[in-house]
Structures are given as structure tokens and as C-alpha cells.
Design a protein around this nucleic acid. Structure first.
Lengths: 325, 325
DNA sequence: TTGTAGGCGTTATCAG
DNA sequence: CTGATAACGCCTACAA
């Protein structure tokens, strides 16, 4: 690894001249510049971004902390966020907690040092104080700890209302909703309380099952759906995230239930997963791309020292009718 | 952000003493240690990992470059790799090229500086020389440039053979295979040449369609599958990656083809996506978790300066019978 | 336009 | 056991 010093020596100039060429700062005689550039090429020089970062207090990396990369929701989100970050000259460091609290703590510690310029949080299981004290730019996706930390989220209550309408119109008797057990700060809990309220008011039964998200991959959901539907045959509809929604649809069909006549499924998120089955799943679609853009806009503005005005950005969702409700 | 100097001042000791406490290097009197620890707490001190990295020539980050995070294959792979890296004290920096050559070049440049300790490549569209000259630890997943850079891959030919057997047993007449157009170094091309050979020898027709992977999300594949199946009604089987396989299955069913009687689908990869449809897709399953472990073992060994012996690690795949062939 | 000197936040060396 | 001092690779005054 060649250093700036070696380049300077080979080019027969001072170190700072090389630095100037590198950063296009200050004026450098074209011929000096050429000499330097040639020396760089000859030595295959690559500046040490680490050292530059020390100086600039900026490395050009934004971290995103998710509970699991496996789930397509976070995969899609990460995809859009990465793309948007890239256009602004940042790289993404995607980290997964596996829904384990030690891992989250561990990552948070790492983020506080200067390895990254900012953090996008898609999980918050630690004490609130930890996030509040966090010194660096941070944006929360789907979570809210206080009024200071910007939040980007979809309108969970609107989504739940739309789902409720579907169930009510279809005269469901008992709706199951699948809820993530963890997280005091999870805004997605709003969707569950709202669905509960809307359905209860309409005289429709609701059963809420809380699960530890990380313990279920698709096959876990398959088992769960069979267990639940066999144990509670009165359940005639489900609202859940895409992945479990897929599992429930499949289980219902395998149990011989007629969809949408006897059984409804509404998927919350609306990634492509809701269209993979032969039967398109009726879905509450989150505008992931727009949310990603807003998130990246906010975090980069914060990094640039920009407007630290409180942000609570809620995006409307839309109901896309499929064949399951 | 408190610095080590401020901590030292508050504790009334020299800077290097604080460093010693931090790194548990050298002997420090317990009471001095306590003083330092208290000062750290009081100032909410977090050491600057960037600067430490400069010194140690190591930051504890491994990059993984993929063509797209959106596709579940890379999502799953990243999931396992991240998990494995974590247990060894490394963090993952997941980067996506979107299959765009400038982006790959851009990332490669960044990786050559010291921002990361090593790179896992799941895409190689640049000139070979670039990878050969690459100074840092690197492992290739599914690609092979030369004998020096370690490779981890599944047995593509075995997979293709297994698929061919399925098609032959089912007396197919014309099999479509979907192939990624890009990449001279892609080992997955072996599966296509092998399928072609096996089927041709058995007197079964083969049609190969090359696509630019990044231009197709699930909906793109849906369109493609309808177009293709309508234009070439003689096609009675498909081998493709999970995501397009899902699209083709759905399209075939929608076109009223009877599966598996009139139409077969074999998915190559075998992530959970092949089980989302009501009908389980017959799949060639890659042992992603094992491959991830091997990849991480190799890259961390390289980073530690360990055995640089050439590695070409090929994992057997297995055929999992579904209901589509 | 170019070079010298000092600093960024750490760590290693070598006295004391 | 502790403290100066130099070093890592780069960047920014300020001087020439």
C-alpha cells in the first residue's frame, strides 16, 4: 500500500501538493499535477479513507440496523435505501440484530464511535435513554422514542382501517392478527390496536397473537399457521405481514378452506411476496421507495448539520385488492 | 465527543494510561484504573474506532458486494454471512451494484482504501486484472477469476444434472432456461451448459433466454413469463432461479396449463420462495448456510494473515421434490 | 504555486 | 506502574 509520502517522493514534490491534487483544493500547476497523477498511477495509490475520515470527521457510511435481513420487507427497504444513499455519495452498512438485545447493544456501541456518519434504526429494544443520548444523526423507521429523533413511518392506523373495512364487508366472524411482541416504541402496534377497535365496534371478533419475530422464518410461520388454524377453526380471516400472510393463505387452502368465500387474508406491507402465490393477496401497501427517499434525505441532512427540526413523517398506505378478500 | 485527552485530564493521568485501561494492555494500578473508568463514564467517552483502525490497520468490517439486495437469494446469503461474521467480531457492509458497472468500479475503489478489512464478491463485471491486483483479502461467491482468489460455490453441474433428470423422466419436449447474461467469470453458467448438454443428449429441446438480471424484479419476471409462454407454447418446462421460477409457475397456471402434467418448474436455489406458492416448487437447493460459513471462515483467515492456499470449495446441492416436476 | 510545521485521536516505545 | 515522545497517514494553516 503506497502512502501519500511515497507518491510525493516519486513525483518530486511535497506531501501537501499531492494532497492538493487529491482534493482538488488550492491551485496546482498542470504539469505538477500531471507528475503527481503519474506517480499515483505508478504506485497504484489509493488514499486511506480511514485517515481522511479521522480528519474530516466523516466517512461516508450510513448504518441501517434491522431485526433481520432475511425478511423481504427489510430487504426491499434496504434495497431502496442503499440506492438512494449511493446517489448522495454514501455507502450502506447493513446490520442485523437477529432480534437479540445484546446484538443491538453491541451495534449501538460501535455506531457511537466514528465508524459511521449516521444510523437508520429499524429496531429499538434497548432502554429509551440509550437512543436519546445517542450523539450521532439518527432516523427511526417505524419507531418513535421521543420528539427529537426524526421518524419515518407509514400510516398504520389508516392501513388497519382499510383492512377492517375488508373484513367487515366480507362479514367475517373472527379475525386473527399477528403482532410482533417486542418493542415499546413500535409504531406498528397502532395498526393492531386500531384493527381491534374497528372490528370490535363492528361486532367482529379479534384474536391477537404476539410472536417473537426472529424466531420465525417462513417455515416457522407455516407450522404456526397450521397449528393456529386447526386449533381455532372459527378464525375466518388473517391480517399479518407479507411473509406470515403467505403462510396463512397456503395453510388455509391446504385445509380446504375456500378463499375468499370462507377465509380472507390481508397482507400488511405489500411487497412482491404478496403476489407470488397463484392467488394475489389483498394487501396494505407501504410506499417503501418514498419512505426510503425521505429517510435518506433526513439522515443526510442531519449529517450535513442541516435542519434539526423535529420530523414525524407519516406516509399514507393504499389498499390493493387481490383475490383473498 | 470526548477525546482520550479530555479523559486523561479529568482523571489526572497521562493519555497513554487511559489507552492502557482501554486496551487492558500493560499494568495499571486498580485505583488509577478506577479513576480513569470514572472519568470515561463522566464524559461518556467512546473511543474513535476510525483512529484505532488507522493504527491497527484493521477496522472489523467485511464488505459484501451483490448485484441486488432485493433478490431473496442474496438476502438469505447476506443473512447467514452477517450472522457468521458477527460471531467472529466483524460487521458486514452490504453493498449493491444494481448490476451497474460504474457502481461496481466505484465500490471496488472504496474497498481498496482501508474502510474494510476484506471483501466478499458476489458479482464481477469488471476486467479480471482489477480483481487480480486487488490488494486486500477477497473471496468470490459463485465466481472464479483465477486460482489465487478463493472461491465458494455450489455444484452447478450436479444441480443441472438433477434438473435434467426430472425433465427427462417427465418426458418434456422443450425446456426453457433463464440465464444471467452478464459475467465471464460466473460459475453458474456451468449449470446452463450442463443442462443444455444433458437434455440435448436425451433428445429434449432446450431454449436459453439470457437476461440482464437487474432489469427484472418480480413483476418484470411476471411479464416476461407471460410473453414467453404465449409466444412459445411448445415450452413445457422451466429451470430458473427461485424468483423467476415463481413467476413462471404462476403464469403457467394462469394460462391453464396443468402442472406437473403439462408443465414442469424446477427452481434453482431453493430458498423459502420456492415454497410460498400453494404448490411447492421442485428445487435444486443450495446449502446457503454452509456456504456462508465457509466463506466467512476463509475471509477471516485471510484477514488474519492465515493460510493463503488456493481454495476452491464446491458444495453439493440436493434436489427437493415439490409438486411441479 | 509550492513547501514547512503542526495537528487529528490513537497506540507503542522507552525512560523514569 | 506511569509518563513523555514519536508515530500512523492525511490535511490545513501559514510562510516562502
Amino acid at each position: 500500500m503506497a502512502t501519500i509520502r511515497e507518491v510525493a517522493k516519486l513525483a518530486g514534490v511535497a506531501v501537501c501538493t499531492v494532497s492538493r491534487v487529491l482534493n482538488e483544493s488550492g491551485n496546482v500547476l498542470p504539469e505538477t499535477r500531471d507528475k503527481v497523477l503519474r506517480a499515483m498511477q505508478a504506485l497504484d495509490y489509493v488514499p486511506d479513507e480511514l485517515t481522511r475520515g479521522v480528519f474530516r470527521k466523516k466517512v461516508g457510511i450510513v448504518a441501517m440496523l434491522v431485526p433481520s435481513i432475511h425478511h423481504i420487507f427489510f430487504g426491499s427497504l434496504a434495497h431502496y435505501i442503499e440506492r438512494e444513499l449511493y446517489t448522495r455519495g454514501y455507502k450502506l452498512m447493513l446490520c442485523s440484530t437477529d432480534d437479540r438485545i445484546e446484538r443491538e447493544a453491541d451495534y449501538m456501541r460501535a455506531f457511537r464511535s466514528n465508524l459511521v456518519d449516521g444510523v437508520i434504526m429499524c429496531v429499538t429494544n434497548l432502554e429509551d435513554a440509550l437512543y436519546e443520548r445517542f450523539q450521532k444523526p439518527m432516523v427511526m423507521l417505524d419507531y418513535k422514542v421521543n420528539d427529537r429523533i426524526p421518524v419515518v413511518v407509514c400510516d398504520n392506523e389508516q392501513g388497519a382501517s382499510l383492512a377492517a373495512e375488508v373484513f367487515i364487508r366480507n362479514k367475517r366472524k373472527m379475525v386473527l392478527q399477528l403482532k410482533s411482541e417486542s418493542g415499546k416504541n413500535v409504531l406498528s402496534h397502532l395498526r393492531h390496536s386500531r384493527l381491534d377497535r374497528d372490528l370490535t365496534e363492528a361486532g367482529v371478533g379479534v384474536r391477537t397473537v404476539s410472536i417473537k419475530w426472529s424466531e420465525f422464518d417462513y417455515y416457522g410461520f407455516q407450522k404456526l399457521s397450521h397449528t393456529v388454524l386447526e386449533a381455532y377453526p372459527e378464525i375466518d380471516a388473517v391480517m399479518a405481514a407479507d411473509l406470515p400472510a403467505c403462510a396463512f393463505l397456503k395453510a388455509a387452502l391446504q385445509l380446504g378452506k375456500h378463499v375468499p368465500g370462507e377465509f380472507n387474508v390481508v397482507a400488511f406491507d405489500g411487497t412482491y411476496l404478496s403476489h407470488v402465490n397463484t392467488m394475489d393477496i389483498t394487501a396494505i401497501v407501504q410506499p417503501l421507495e418514498q419512505m426510503a427517499v425521505k429517510t435518506v434525505e433526513t439522515i443526510t441532512a442531519l449529517i450535513a448539520g442541516g435542519p434539526v427540526e423535529p420530523v414525524f413523517c407519516q406516509f399514507p398506505v393504499r389498499l390493493v385488492h387481490g383475490e383473498t378478500g
